[in-house]
Nucleic acid binder design. Structure first.
Lengths: 257, 257
DNA sequence: CGAAGCGTTGAGTGCTTTCAATAGTTGTGG
DNA sequence: CCACAACTATTGAAAGCACTCAACGCTTCG
Protein backbone atom coordinates (compact mmCIF):
# COMPACT_ATOMS: atom_id res chain seq x y z
CA UNK A 1 0.00 0.00 0.00
CA UNK A 2 3.05 2.21 0.01
CA UNK A 3 2.63 3.15 -3.66
CA UNK A 4 -0.97 4.21 -3.23
CA UNK A 5 -0.09 7.86 -3.47
CA UNK A 6 1.95 7.25 -6.55
CA UNK A 7 -0.98 5.66 -8.28
CA UNK A 8 -3.29 8.48 -7.25
CA UNK A 9 -0.91 11.12 -8.51
CA UNK A 10 -0.51 9.48 -11.88
CA UNK A 11 -4.24 9.11 -12.12
CA UNK A 12 -4.72 12.79 -11.45
CA UNK A 13 -2.22 13.66 -14.07
CA UNK A 14 -4.16 11.83 -16.75
CA UNK A 15 -5.31 14.23 -19.43
CA UNK A 16 -7.98 14.03 -22.06
CA UNK A 17 -5.30 13.76 -24.71
CA UNK A 18 -3.87 10.69 -23.07
CA UNK A 19 -7.29 9.06 -22.94
CA UNK A 20 -7.97 6.61 -25.72
CA UNK A 21 -11.49 7.91 -25.97
CA UNK A 22 -10.83 11.57 -26.46
CA UNK A 23 -12.04 11.49 -30.03
CA UNK A 24 -15.41 10.14 -28.94
CA UNK A 25 -15.79 12.27 -25.85
CA UNK A 26 -16.13 15.89 -24.77
CA UNK A 27 -12.79 17.11 -26.19
CA UNK A 28 -13.82 15.97 -29.68
CA UNK A 29 -12.67 18.56 -32.15
CA UNK A 30 -11.01 20.86 -29.62
CA UNK A 31 -7.74 22.63 -30.27
CA UNK A 32 -4.87 21.59 -28.04
CA UNK A 33 -4.94 24.71 -25.92
CA UNK A 34 -8.64 24.42 -25.39
CA UNK A 35 -8.23 20.82 -24.40
CA UNK A 36 -5.96 21.88 -21.59
CA UNK A 37 -8.60 24.26 -20.33
CA UNK A 38 -11.08 21.45 -20.39
CA UNK A 39 -8.63 19.26 -18.49
CA UNK A 40 -8.34 21.87 -15.81
CA UNK A 41 -12.08 21.89 -15.34
CA UNK A 42 -12.62 18.18 -15.00
CA UNK A 43 -13.10 17.75 -11.32
CA UNK A 44 -11.85 14.26 -10.69
CA UNK A 45 -12.13 10.74 -11.81
CA UNK A 46 -14.48 8.54 -9.91
CA UNK A 47 -14.77 4.80 -9.84
CA UNK A 48 -18.13 3.27 -9.08
CA UNK A 49 -18.94 -0.35 -8.50
CA UNK A 50 -21.68 -2.38 -10.13
CA UNK A 51 -25.06 -1.38 -8.76
CA UNK A 52 -23.92 2.04 -7.53
CA UNK A 53 -25.68 5.10 -8.83
CA UNK A 54 -23.96 7.86 -10.72
CA UNK A 55 -26.98 9.97 -9.92
CA UNK A 56 -30.64 9.38 -9.28
CA UNK A 57 -33.76 10.84 -10.69
CA UNK A 58 -34.73 14.08 -8.90
CA UNK A 59 -31.20 14.63 -7.64
CA UNK A 60 -30.02 18.20 -8.06
CA UNK A 61 -28.13 18.61 -11.29
CA UNK A 62 -24.63 19.99 -11.09
CA UNK A 63 -22.34 17.60 -12.88
CA UNK A 64 -21.97 15.98 -16.25
CA UNK A 65 -20.33 12.58 -16.48
CA UNK A 66 -18.14 11.11 -19.17
CA UNK A 67 -17.73 7.37 -19.09
CA UNK A 68 -14.13 6.19 -19.21
CA UNK A 69 -14.68 2.48 -18.83
CA UNK A 70 -17.46 0.15 -17.88
CA UNK A 71 -21.10 0.73 -18.69
CA UNK A 72 -24.07 2.55 -17.26
CA UNK A 73 -27.80 2.08 -17.53
CA UNK A 74 -30.12 5.08 -17.50
CA UNK A 75 -33.80 4.81 -16.79
CA UNK A 76 -36.71 6.99 -15.83
CA UNK A 77 -39.48 6.07 -13.45
CA UNK A 78 -43.06 7.07 -13.85
CA UNK A 79 -45.44 7.98 -11.09
CA UNK A 80 -46.91 4.48 -10.91
CA UNK A 81 -43.50 2.98 -10.23
CA UNK A 82 -42.96 1.54 -13.67
CA UNK A 83 -39.50 2.02 -15.08
CA UNK A 84 -38.35 2.66 -18.59
CA UNK A 85 -34.74 1.97 -19.49
CA UNK A 86 -33.66 4.79 -21.78
CA UNK A 87 -30.26 3.53 -22.72
CA UNK A 88 -27.04 1.71 -22.03
CA UNK A 89 -24.00 3.91 -22.12
CA UNK A 90 -20.51 2.89 -23.06
CA UNK A 91 -17.10 4.53 -22.76
CA UNK A 92 -16.87 7.93 -24.41
CA UNK A 93 -20.50 8.82 -23.82
CA UNK A 94 -21.63 11.89 -21.94
CA UNK A 95 -24.34 11.60 -19.31
CA UNK A 96 -26.50 14.05 -17.46
CA UNK A 97 -26.94 16.85 -19.98
CA UNK A 98 -30.65 16.26 -20.32
CA UNK A 99 -31.15 17.59 -16.82
CA UNK A 100 -30.39 21.15 -17.91
CA UNK A 101 -33.97 22.13 -18.32
CA UNK A 102 -35.18 21.16 -14.86
CA UNK A 103 -32.00 21.52 -12.84
CA UNK A 104 -32.83 18.08 -11.52
CA UNK A 105 -32.02 14.78 -13.05
CA UNK A 106 -34.94 13.25 -14.87
CA UNK A 107 -33.47 9.80 -15.02
CA UNK A 108 -31.27 7.61 -12.89
CA UNK A 109 -27.87 6.31 -13.92
CA UNK A 110 -26.61 3.09 -12.42
CA UNK A 111 -23.40 1.21 -13.13
CA UNK A 112 -23.84 -2.17 -14.80
CA UNK A 113 -20.30 -3.14 -13.90
CA UNK A 114 -17.30 -1.48 -12.31
CA UNK A 115 -17.21 1.82 -14.11
CA UNK A 116 -14.92 4.80 -14.12
CA UNK A 117 -16.12 8.26 -15.06
CA UNK A 118 -14.86 11.80 -15.37
CA UNK A 119 -16.93 14.40 -13.59
CA UNK A 120 -17.36 17.82 -15.11
CA UNK A 121 -19.12 20.60 -13.22
CA UNK A 122 -21.81 21.82 -15.55
CA UNK A 123 -21.37 25.46 -14.60
CA UNK A 124 -17.77 25.29 -15.59
CA UNK A 125 -18.68 23.61 -18.80
CA UNK A 126 -21.13 26.37 -19.62
CA UNK A 127 -18.44 28.94 -19.00
CA UNK A 128 -16.04 27.10 -21.23
CA UNK A 129 -18.69 26.83 -23.88
CA UNK A 130 -19.00 30.60 -23.88
CA UNK A 131 -15.32 31.08 -24.51
CA UNK A 132 -14.75 28.20 -26.86
CA UNK A 133 -17.16 28.17 -29.78
CA UNK A 134 -16.38 24.62 -30.74
CA UNK A 135 -17.13 23.52 -27.20
CA UNK A 136 -20.52 25.17 -27.27
CA UNK A 137 -21.19 23.60 -30.61
CA UNK A 138 -20.12 20.24 -29.32
CA UNK A 139 -22.50 20.34 -26.39
CA UNK A 140 -25.37 21.09 -28.71
CA UNK A 141 -24.03 18.37 -30.92
CA UNK A 142 -24.12 15.81 -28.14
CA UNK A 143 -27.66 16.67 -27.20
CA UNK A 144 -28.90 16.72 -30.76
CA UNK A 145 -27.37 13.31 -31.19
CA UNK A 146 -29.24 12.02 -28.21
CA UNK A 147 -32.48 13.34 -29.65
CA UNK A 148 -31.79 11.57 -32.90
CA UNK A 149 -31.01 8.32 -31.19
CA UNK A 150 -34.20 8.65 -29.15
CA UNK A 151 -36.18 9.12 -32.34
CA UNK A 152 -34.58 6.03 -33.74
CA UNK A 153 -35.49 4.13 -30.61
CA UNK A 154 -39.02 5.44 -30.86
CA UNK A 155 -39.40 4.27 -34.41
CA UNK A 156 -38.00 0.90 -33.47
CA UNK A 157 -40.45 0.29 -30.67
CA UNK A 158 -43.38 1.71 -32.57
CA UNK A 159 -42.89 0.00 -35.89
CA UNK A 160 -40.72 -3.06 -35.59
CA UNK A 161 -41.58 -6.57 -34.50
CA UNK A 162 -39.78 -8.02 -31.50
CA UNK A 163 -37.29 -9.97 -33.57
CA UNK A 164 -36.11 -6.90 -35.44
CA UNK A 165 -35.79 -4.90 -32.24
CA UNK A 166 -33.43 -7.34 -30.61
CA UNK A 167 -31.45 -7.72 -33.81
CA UNK A 168 -31.01 -3.98 -34.10
CA UNK A 169 -30.03 -3.73 -30.49
CA UNK A 170 -27.32 -6.34 -30.92
CA UNK A 171 -26.10 -4.76 -34.14
CA UNK A 172 -25.87 -1.35 -32.54
CA UNK A 173 -23.85 -2.78 -29.66
CA UNK A 174 -21.66 -4.56 -32.16
CA UNK A 175 -21.05 -1.36 -34.10
CA UNK A 176 -20.22 0.52 -30.91
CA UNK A 177 -17.61 -2.02 -29.92
CA UNK A 178 -16.26 -2.20 -33.43
CA UNK A 179 -15.82 1.56 -33.63
CA UNK A 180 -13.85 1.57 -30.44
CA UNK A 181 -11.43 -1.08 -31.51
CA UNK A 182 -13.01 -4.09 -29.87
CA UNK A 183 -14.43 -7.12 -31.56
CA UNK A 184 -17.68 -6.43 -33.37
CA UNK A 185 -18.63 -10.07 -33.45
CA UNK A 186 -17.86 -11.26 -29.94
CA UNK A 187 -18.69 -9.32 -26.82
CA UNK A 188 -20.12 -9.37 -23.36
CA UNK A 189 -23.55 -8.05 -22.40
CA UNK A 190 -23.23 -6.12 -19.18
CA UNK A 191 -26.98 -5.74 -18.80
CA UNK A 192 -29.57 -8.30 -17.75
CA UNK A 193 -32.25 -9.76 -19.99
CA UNK A 194 -34.69 -7.75 -17.94
CA UNK A 195 -32.94 -4.51 -18.87
CA UNK A 196 -32.79 -5.42 -22.53
CA UNK A 197 -36.46 -6.31 -22.55
CA UNK A 198 -37.32 -3.06 -20.83
CA UNK A 199 -35.31 -0.96 -23.28
CA UNK A 200 -36.93 -2.67 -26.24
CA UNK A 201 -40.43 -2.57 -24.84
CA UNK A 202 -40.72 -6.35 -24.63
CA UNK A 203 -41.30 -9.00 -21.99
CA UNK A 204 -38.27 -10.79 -20.57
CA UNK A 205 -39.58 -14.08 -21.85
CA UNK A 206 -39.78 -12.74 -25.37
CA UNK A 207 -36.16 -11.64 -25.30
CA UNK A 208 -35.11 -15.01 -23.98
CA UNK A 209 -37.06 -16.80 -26.69
CA UNK A 210 -35.58 -14.58 -29.37
CA UNK A 211 -32.04 -15.30 -28.24
CA UNK A 212 -32.79 -19.00 -28.49
CA UNK A 213 -34.42 -18.47 -31.84
CA UNK A 214 -31.45 -16.56 -33.26
CA UNK A 215 -29.18 -19.30 -32.00
CA UNK A 216 -31.29 -22.00 -33.58
CA UNK A 217 -31.06 -20.18 -36.88
CA UNK A 218 -27.29 -20.08 -36.58
CA UNK A 219 -27.15 -16.29 -36.55
CA UNK A 220 -25.28 -16.17 -33.27
CA UNK A 221 -24.20 -18.06 -30.20
CA UNK A 222 -25.30 -16.93 -26.80
CA UNK A 223 -24.28 -18.27 -23.45
CA UNK A 224 -25.65 -16.16 -20.66
CA UNK A 225 -24.04 -12.80 -21.36
CA UNK A 226 -21.46 -13.88 -23.86
CA UNK A 227 -22.44 -13.19 -27.46
CA UNK A 228 -20.81 -14.34 -30.66
CA UNK A 229 -22.32 -13.13 -33.89
CA UNK A 230 -21.91 -15.61 -36.71
CA UNK A 231 -24.00 -14.09 -39.45
CA UNK A 232 -24.06 -10.31 -39.41
CA UNK A 233 -25.98 -10.08 -42.68
CA UNK A 234 -28.54 -12.55 -41.49
CA UNK A 235 -29.10 -10.44 -38.39
CA UNK A 236 -29.47 -7.34 -40.51
CA UNK A 237 -32.05 -9.04 -42.66
CA UNK A 238 -34.27 -9.74 -39.69
CA UNK A 239 -34.10 -5.99 -39.10
CA UNK A 240 -35.92 -5.29 -42.35
CA UNK A 241 -39.37 -5.54 -40.79
CA UNK A 242 -40.44 -8.84 -42.29
CA UNK A 243 -39.28 -7.95 -45.77
CA UNK A 244 -39.05 -5.01 -48.12
CA UNK A 245 -42.55 -3.74 -48.39
CA UNK A 246 -42.90 -1.25 -51.22
CA UNK A 247 -44.62 1.34 -49.07
CA UNK A 248 -46.31 4.18 -50.88
CA UNK A 249 -44.21 7.24 -50.19
CA UNK A 250 -45.77 9.90 -48.03
CA UNK A 251 -48.63 7.88 -46.67
CA UNK A 252 -49.73 10.75 -44.48
CA UNK A 253 -52.57 13.13 -45.00
CA UNK A 254 -50.38 15.77 -46.53
CA UNK A 255 -48.97 16.27 -49.96
CA UNK A 256 -46.45 18.70 -51.25
CA UNK A 257 -47.86 21.34 -53.49
CA UNK B 1 -54.13 46.76 -52.21
CA UNK B 2 -52.69 50.20 -51.57
CA UNK B 3 -52.02 49.48 -47.91
CA UNK B 4 -50.14 46.29 -48.63
CA UNK B 5 -46.79 47.91 -47.90
CA UNK B 6 -48.14 49.31 -44.67
CA UNK B 7 -49.12 45.87 -43.53
CA UNK B 8 -45.75 44.44 -44.44
CA UNK B 9 -43.92 47.17 -42.60
CA UNK B 10 -45.90 46.68 -39.47
CA UNK B 11 -45.34 42.97 -39.72
CA UNK B 12 -41.62 43.49 -39.97
CA UNK B 13 -41.67 45.74 -37.00
CA UNK B 14 -43.14 43.02 -34.82
CA UNK B 15 -40.80 42.21 -31.99
CA UNK B 16 -40.50 39.24 -29.69
CA UNK B 17 -41.81 41.38 -26.85
CA UNK B 18 -44.97 42.12 -28.72
CA UNK B 19 -45.54 38.46 -29.43
CA UNK B 20 -47.97 36.76 -27.11
CA UNK B 21 -45.76 33.72 -27.05
CA UNK B 22 -42.51 35.25 -25.99
CA UNK B 23 -42.61 33.62 -22.60
CA UNK B 24 -42.83 30.18 -24.21
CA UNK B 25 -40.36 30.82 -26.98
CA UNK B 26 -36.73 31.62 -27.59
CA UNK B 27 -36.65 34.93 -25.69
CA UNK B 28 -37.79 33.18 -22.53
CA UNK B 29 -35.91 34.67 -19.61
CA UNK B 30 -33.93 37.19 -21.62
CA UNK B 31 -33.22 40.70 -20.40
CA UNK B 32 -34.81 43.45 -22.46
CA UNK B 33 -31.61 44.53 -24.10
CA UNK B 34 -30.76 41.00 -25.05
CA UNK B 35 -34.19 40.56 -26.48
CA UNK B 36 -33.55 43.38 -28.88
CA UNK B 37 -30.39 41.68 -30.03
CA UNK B 38 -32.39 38.54 -30.64
CA UNK B 39 -34.96 40.53 -32.57
CA UNK B 40 -32.27 41.90 -34.83
CA UNK B 41 -31.15 38.39 -35.66
CA UNK B 42 -34.50 36.91 -36.57
CA UNK B 43 -34.37 36.83 -40.32
CA UNK B 44 -38.01 37.17 -41.26
CA UNK B 45 -41.40 35.79 -40.71
CA UNK B 46 -42.64 33.22 -43.11
CA UNK B 47 -46.12 31.92 -43.72
CA UNK B 48 -46.55 28.42 -45.00
CA UNK B 49 -49.71 26.72 -46.15
CA UNK B 50 -51.02 23.36 -45.12
CA UNK B 51 -48.97 20.60 -46.69
CA UNK B 52 -45.92 22.76 -47.28
CA UNK B 53 -42.64 21.75 -45.78
CA UNK B 54 -40.67 23.87 -43.37
CA UNK B 55 -37.72 21.67 -44.16
CA UNK B 56 -37.17 18.12 -45.23
CA UNK B 57 -35.00 15.36 -43.96
CA UNK B 58 -31.48 15.56 -45.38
CA UNK B 59 -31.84 19.25 -46.20
CA UNK B 60 -28.82 21.27 -45.18
CA UNK B 61 -29.30 22.75 -41.74
CA UNK B 62 -28.96 26.49 -41.39
CA UNK B 63 -32.09 27.76 -39.73
CA UNK B 64 -34.07 27.23 -36.57
CA UNK B 65 -37.81 27.83 -36.65
CA UNK B 66 -40.11 29.16 -33.97
CA UNK B 67 -43.79 28.57 -34.52
CA UNK B 68 -45.97 31.64 -34.19
CA UNK B 69 -49.30 30.18 -35.15
CA UNK B 70 -50.63 27.02 -36.69
CA UNK B 71 -49.11 23.60 -36.17
CA UNK B 72 -46.39 21.46 -37.63
CA UNK B 73 -45.79 17.74 -37.81
CA UNK B 74 -42.28 16.34 -37.68
CA UNK B 75 -41.40 12.86 -38.78
CA UNK B 76 -38.40 10.80 -39.71
CA UNK B 77 -38.24 8.25 -42.47
CA UNK B 78 -36.31 5.05 -42.31
CA UNK B 79 -34.46 3.37 -45.17
CA UNK B 80 -37.39 1.05 -45.94
CA UNK B 81 -39.73 3.98 -46.49
CA UNK B 82 -41.62 3.67 -43.23
CA UNK B 83 -42.28 6.91 -41.43
CA UNK B 84 -42.33 7.70 -37.76
CA UNK B 85 -44.12 10.82 -36.60
CA UNK B 86 -41.98 12.30 -33.85
CA UNK B 87 -44.26 15.08 -32.74
CA UNK B 88 -46.83 17.75 -33.35
CA UNK B 89 -45.60 21.23 -32.66
CA UNK B 90 -47.65 24.17 -31.53
CA UNK B 91 -47.04 27.90 -31.26
CA UNK B 92 -44.04 28.80 -29.12
CA UNK B 93 -42.10 25.68 -29.96
CA UNK B 94 -38.65 25.68 -31.50
CA UNK B 95 -37.88 23.37 -34.41
CA UNK B 96 -34.73 22.23 -36.10
CA UNK B 97 -32.21 22.23 -33.29
CA UNK B 98 -31.75 18.50 -33.40
CA UNK B 99 -29.98 18.84 -36.72
CA UNK B 100 -26.93 20.39 -35.09
CA UNK B 101 -24.99 17.18 -34.92
CA UNK B 102 -25.22 16.24 -38.58
CA UNK B 103 -25.57 19.65 -40.22
CA UNK B 104 -28.48 18.10 -42.07
CA UNK B 105 -32.03 17.77 -40.91
CA UNK B 106 -32.82 14.33 -39.63
CA UNK B 107 -36.55 14.78 -39.81
CA UNK B 108 -39.06 16.56 -41.99
CA UNK B 109 -41.38 19.30 -40.80
CA UNK B 110 -44.65 19.83 -42.61
CA UNK B 111 -47.43 22.29 -41.83
CA UNK B 112 -50.70 20.72 -40.69
CA UNK B 113 -52.53 23.96 -41.35
CA UNK B 114 -51.65 27.48 -42.37
CA UNK B 115 -48.70 28.24 -40.14
CA UNK B 116 -46.50 31.22 -39.53
CA UNK B 117 -42.98 30.87 -38.23
CA UNK B 118 -39.99 32.99 -37.31
CA UNK B 119 -36.73 31.96 -38.91
CA UNK B 120 -33.52 32.28 -36.98
CA UNK B 121 -30.18 31.60 -38.65
CA UNK B 122 -28.48 29.06 -36.46
CA UNK B 123 -25.05 30.59 -36.86
CA UNK B 124 -26.35 33.85 -35.53
CA UNK B 125 -28.00 32.07 -32.68
CA UNK B 126 -24.75 30.39 -31.76
CA UNK B 127 -23.01 33.75 -31.75
CA UNK B 128 -25.70 35.21 -29.56
CA UNK B 129 -25.44 32.25 -27.24
CA UNK B 130 -21.77 32.97 -26.77
CA UNK B 131 -22.43 36.53 -25.73
CA UNK B 132 -25.57 35.97 -23.72
CA UNK B 133 -25.20 33.26 -21.10
CA UNK B 134 -28.91 32.93 -20.55
CA UNK B 135 -29.39 32.38 -24.26
CA UNK B 136 -26.86 29.62 -24.31
CA UNK B 137 -28.51 28.09 -21.31
CA UNK B 138 -31.88 28.37 -22.92
CA UNK B 139 -30.82 26.53 -26.04
CA UNK B 140 -29.50 23.69 -23.93
CA UNK B 141 -32.72 23.93 -21.99
CA UNK B 142 -34.85 23.52 -25.09
CA UNK B 143 -32.92 20.52 -26.26
CA UNK B 144 -32.88 18.88 -22.88
CA UNK B 145 -36.61 19.34 -22.77
CA UNK B 146 -37.02 17.61 -26.07
CA UNK B 147 -34.97 14.70 -24.80
CA UNK B 148 -37.17 14.45 -21.77
CA UNK B 149 -40.33 14.53 -23.80
CA UNK B 150 -38.91 11.87 -26.10
CA UNK B 151 -38.21 9.67 -23.09
CA UNK B 152 -41.77 10.17 -21.97
CA UNK B 153 -43.00 9.21 -25.40
CA UNK B 154 -40.75 6.17 -25.36
CA UNK B 155 -42.13 5.02 -22.06
CA UNK B 156 -45.65 5.55 -23.29
CA UNK B 157 -45.24 3.43 -26.39
CA UNK B 158 -43.23 0.76 -24.64
CA UNK B 159 -45.35 0.33 -21.55
CA UNK B 160 -48.86 1.60 -21.99
CA UNK B 161 -51.86 -0.02 -23.64
CA UNK B 162 -53.43 1.70 -26.61
CA UNK B 163 -56.22 3.27 -24.59
CA UNK B 164 -53.82 4.99 -22.22
CA UNK B 165 -51.67 6.27 -25.06
CA UNK B 166 -54.51 8.05 -26.78
CA UNK B 167 -55.77 9.42 -23.48
CA UNK B 168 -52.35 10.80 -22.65
CA UNK B 169 -52.04 12.29 -26.06
CA UNK B 170 -55.34 14.11 -25.73
CA UNK B 171 -54.50 15.27 -22.22
CA UNK B 172 -51.16 16.64 -23.32
CA UNK B 173 -52.81 18.55 -26.13
CA UNK B 174 -55.38 19.83 -23.68
CA UNK B 175 -52.70 21.01 -21.29
CA UNK B 176 -50.82 22.73 -24.09
CA UNK B 177 -53.89 24.66 -25.15
CA UNK B 178 -54.80 25.44 -21.57
CA UNK B 179 -51.36 26.85 -20.83
CA UNK B 180 -51.58 29.15 -23.79
CA UNK B 181 -54.88 30.60 -22.85
CA UNK B 182 -57.15 28.49 -25.01
CA UNK B 183 -59.81 26.09 -23.88
CA UNK B 184 -58.41 22.95 -22.34
CA UNK B 185 -61.62 21.03 -22.87
CA UNK B 186 -62.61 21.92 -26.41
CA UNK B 187 -60.21 22.10 -29.29
CA UNK B 188 -59.49 21.18 -32.86
CA UNK B 189 -57.16 18.40 -33.98
CA UNK B 190 -55.08 19.65 -36.86
CA UNK B 191 -53.63 16.24 -37.56
CA UNK B 192 -55.20 13.21 -39.19
CA UNK B 193 -56.06 9.94 -37.44
CA UNK B 194 -53.26 8.43 -39.42
CA UNK B 195 -50.76 10.86 -37.92
CA UNK B 196 -52.04 10.26 -34.42
CA UNK B 197 -51.83 6.51 -34.88
CA UNK B 198 -48.33 6.81 -36.22
CA UNK B 199 -47.16 8.96 -33.33
CA UNK B 200 -48.62 6.56 -30.80
CA UNK B 201 -47.38 3.43 -32.51
CA UNK B 202 -50.87 2.13 -33.25
CA UNK B 203 -52.96 1.21 -36.26
CA UNK B 204 -55.36 3.84 -37.59
CA UNK B 205 -58.28 1.53 -36.92
CA UNK B 206 -57.30 1.23 -33.29
CA UNK B 207 -57.27 4.98 -32.86
CA UNK B 208 -60.65 5.26 -34.50
CA UNK B 209 -62.09 2.56 -32.27
CA UNK B 210 -60.66 4.21 -29.18
CA UNK B 211 -62.25 7.54 -30.05
CA UNK B 212 -65.57 5.79 -30.38
CA UNK B 213 -64.94 3.93 -27.17
CA UNK B 214 -64.13 7.08 -25.23
CA UNK B 215 -67.23 8.67 -26.62
CA UNK B 216 -69.40 5.71 -25.63
CA UNK B 217 -68.04 6.00 -22.11
CA UNK B 218 -69.00 9.65 -22.01
CA UNK B 219 -65.42 10.82 -21.52
CA UNK B 220 -65.51 13.08 -24.55
CA UNK B 221 -67.31 14.00 -27.71
CA UNK B 222 -65.58 13.72 -31.02
CA UNK B 223 -66.80 14.78 -34.40
CA UNK B 224 -64.10 14.43 -36.99
CA UNK B 225 -61.44 16.79 -35.71
CA UNK B 226 -63.44 18.60 -33.11
CA UNK B 227 -62.88 17.37 -29.57
CA UNK B 228 -64.78 18.19 -26.41
CA UNK B 229 -63.52 16.62 -23.22
CA UNK B 230 -66.31 15.96 -20.75
CA UNK B 231 -64.53 14.03 -18.04
CA UNK B 232 -60.93 15.01 -17.56
CA UNK B 233 -60.49 12.80 -14.51
CA UNK B 234 -62.00 9.85 -16.29
CA UNK B 235 -59.51 10.29 -19.09
CA UNK B 236 -56.68 10.52 -16.62
CA UNK B 237 -57.77 7.31 -14.98
CA UNK B 238 -57.49 5.40 -18.22
CA UNK B 239 -53.91 6.64 -18.29
CA UNK B 240 -53.05 4.70 -15.16
CA UNK B 241 -52.14 1.54 -17.06
CA UNK B 242 -55.12 -0.56 -16.11
CA UNK B 243 -54.87 0.31 -12.44
CA UNK B 244 -52.29 1.03 -9.78
CA UNK B 245 -50.19 -2.05 -9.69
CA UNK B 246 -47.96 -2.10 -6.62
CA UNK B 247 -44.82 -2.80 -8.59
CA UNK B 248 -41.79 -3.91 -6.63
CA UNK B 249 -39.38 -1.00 -6.71
CA UNK B 250 -36.23 -1.48 -8.72
CA UNK B 251 -37.20 -4.61 -10.54
CA UNK B 252 -33.94 -4.62 -12.46
CA UNK B 253 -30.89 -6.69 -11.90
CA UNK B 254 -29.20 -4.07 -9.82
CA UNK B 255 -29.39 -3.18 -6.22
CA UNK B 256 -27.91 -0.31 -4.35
CA UNK B 257 -25.20 -1.30 -1.92
C1' DC C 1 -26.18 -25.54 1.64
C1' DG C 2 -30.29 -22.98 1.15
C1' DA C 3 -32.30 -18.76 -0.47
C1' DA C 4 -32.83 -15.50 -3.92
C1' DG C 5 -32.52 -13.98 -8.36
C1' DC C 6 -31.74 -14.71 -13.35
C1' DG C 7 -32.78 -17.14 -17.47
C1' DT C 8 -35.27 -20.54 -20.23
C1' DT C 9 -39.19 -22.97 -21.96
C1' DG C 10 -44.21 -24.23 -22.45
C1' DA C 11 -49.21 -23.35 -22.77
C1' DG C 12 -53.02 -20.35 -23.08
C1' DT C 13 -54.96 -15.80 -23.42
C1' DG C 14 -55.69 -11.30 -25.13
C1' DC C 15 -54.78 -6.97 -27.10
C1' DT C 16 -53.85 -5.09 -31.40
C1' DT C 17 -53.33 -5.74 -36.13
C1' DT C 18 -54.73 -7.03 -40.62
C1' DC C 19 -58.14 -7.63 -43.99
C1' DA C 20 -62.35 -6.05 -45.80
C1' DA C 21 -66.34 -3.38 -46.60
C1' DT C 22 -68.90 0.97 -46.08
C1' DA C 23 -69.67 6.02 -45.21
C1' DG C 24 -68.39 10.45 -45.17
C1' DT C 25 -65.38 14.25 -46.95
C1' DT C 26 -62.64 16.88 -50.13
C1' DG C 27 -61.26 18.42 -54.48
C1' DT C 28 -61.40 18.63 -59.41
C1' DG C 29 -63.10 18.96 -63.91
C1' DG C 30 -66.65 18.51 -67.18
C1' DC D 1 -73.26 22.78 -60.07
C1' DC D 2 -72.91 18.20 -59.92
C1' DA D 3 -70.45 13.91 -60.56
C1' DC D 4 -66.58 11.24 -60.06
C1' DA D 5 -62.23 10.20 -57.95
C1' DA D 6 -59.28 9.98 -54.09
C1' DC D 7 -58.78 10.04 -49.56
C1' DT D 8 -60.09 9.80 -44.61
C1' DA D 9 -62.66 7.71 -41.07
C1' DT D 10 -65.45 4.12 -39.02
C1' DT D 11 -66.86 -0.54 -37.99
C1' DG D 12 -66.76 -5.69 -38.11
C1' DA D 13 -64.52 -10.24 -38.16
C1' DA D 14 -60.62 -13.09 -38.00
C1' DA D 15 -55.76 -13.92 -37.18
C1' DG D 16 -51.33 -13.32 -34.94
C1' DC D 17 -47.75 -11.67 -32.15
C1' DA D 18 -46.36 -10.89 -27.81
C1' DC D 19 -47.80 -11.16 -22.98
C1' DT D 20 -49.07 -13.43 -18.74
C1' DC D 21 -48.94 -17.30 -15.90
C1' DA D 22 -46.35 -21.12 -14.44
C1' DA D 23 -42.73 -24.33 -13.67
C1' DC D 24 -37.98 -25.53 -13.67
C1' DG D 25 -32.76 -25.37 -14.19
C1' DC D 26 -28.86 -22.56 -13.29
C1' DT D 27 -25.97 -19.22 -10.95
C1' DT D 28 -24.72 -16.26 -7.14
C1' DC D 29 -24.14 -15.14 -2.58
C1' DG D 30 -24.68 -15.10 2.41
Amino acid sequence: MKDKTVIDLSALRVTCQSCGLYQFCLPMGLAEGDMERLDSVIKRRRKIEKGEYLYRMHDAFSTVYAIRSGSVKTYTSIESGAEQVTGFHLPGELLGLNAVSTQHHTNSAIALETTSVCEVPFERLEELARDIPSMQHHMLHVMSQEIQSDHCQLMMIAKMPAEARLARFLLSLSAHFGNRGFSATEFHLSMSRNDIANLLGLAVETVSRLFSHFQDEGLLSVERKHIVIHDMDGLMNTTAQGSSQPLPKDSSSNQRP
